[in-house]
Design a protein around this nucleic acid. Structure first.
Lengths: 187, 187
DNA sequence: GAAACCATTTAACAAATGATAAAAAGTAGC
DNA sequence: GCTACTTTTTATCATTTGTTAAATGGTTTC
């Protein structure tokens, strides 16, 4: 997914403002398995996924629990770092070779203070993330594991094809054994 | 909780910007039981709670599921309306007589375009809501019902004193019967 | 293509939660 | 203080999910 598209999709910007953001962005590549964000670290960049897929997970006791997937066009943000300059609670791992757009947080913060359009772009950026977060929260609270799996299957079929079931199970809030049972029933 | 405190706590503003926001705010009162937001309606205001407590709930089949509580100092927002001008999925009910600060969304949107400080204030406002949402999401996914109850008890003891257990149970994602069992064990 | 490795499913039993109903405790009005 | 009403707890049984382990299926490597 192309950078202009990603920026415009959040909030339309005058050319000058858009260029200011684009000048702060560099393209990078990392191989499958690369750890992009590390738990207990203050992250200084946010990313947009040009190509590939990633997951965020945290540890509960000894086992990893995946709570986010991102694919082409999605932002990758350690929210605690981005918002409060605090250590994040998550690792972000690349599940495929990835091409990324990297944006240094401090550059973006400076632009927020200078340019009202960019400040509003940043506002809309977080607003959309909040809508996604609320929708997931409500899905977790309202729907059974079976329903949540069906929704994922319907809305993000590519995730299920590209990601191992162990990660999907923990994303759905159940064990892999449970997910297997659900899959067996649905067929 | 006082209005200046609420505004400042989100993001420090120059006096002129702060006054612009304050001029758009009016104080209102509603009695216990009042429905502040109605499901399937585009809400045109957001509120801050000066005094009182409220809950947001949606229907799953026939039963109400509470997914949010707000008390003194908290914002009350129908996010779908606020962000996308779309119908909300929730009712918001006042659980006590409430005093509220009301802010018309369209006035705020206009200020966002005019004033870079206010745009950044709006950005921080949503950022903090996002952090809260993520924390709740992760609690739901990572912790058992017992742990979630213990956390609520620790972080928001007043909620448990002021709100009926049926609402708290659905907030925790369990039945009231389950919550009773948990409470019996913890003692 | 056999061996080694990883991902997924199945099986068996334990624990947690849901559903329904009834009992107990608490509150409000007269 | 009695009655009516609401909220909370307990009890019983069915269902779902977790845990552990083994079996199956797929991939990779040599």
């Amino acid at each position: 997914m192309d950078l202009d598209q990603i920026i415009d999709h959040i909030y339309p910007l005058p050319t000058a403002s858009k260029n200011a953001i684009k000048e702060s962005i560099i393209e990078t590549k990392y191989p499958k398995g690369h750890i992009l964000f590390k738990v207990n670290k203050v992250e200084t960049s946010i990313y947009f996924i040009k190509k590939g897929i990633a997951r965020a997970y945290a540890y509960s006791d000894d086992n990893q629990i995946t709570f986010w997937f991102g694919q082409e066009g999605d932002p990758v943000v350690s929210m605690k770092s981005y918002v409060n300059n605090q250590k994040g609670y998550e690792d972000v791992e690349l599940l495929e070779d990835c091409e990324l757009y990297e944006l240094k947080t401090n550059k973006l913060q400076a632009l927020f203070l200078e340019d009202v359009h960019i400040a509003n772009w940043g506002r809309k950026f977080v607003e959309f993330e909040l809508i996604k977060s609320e929708e997931r929260l409500i899905a977790l609270q309202f729907n059974t594991a079976t329903e949540r799996y069906a929704t994922l299957l319907k809305n993000y079929p590519s995730i299920i094809q590209r990601v191992q079931l162990a990660h999907i199970a923990s994303f759905l809030g159940i064990t892999q054994v449970s997910l297997s049972r659900i899959r067996a029933k649905i067929k």
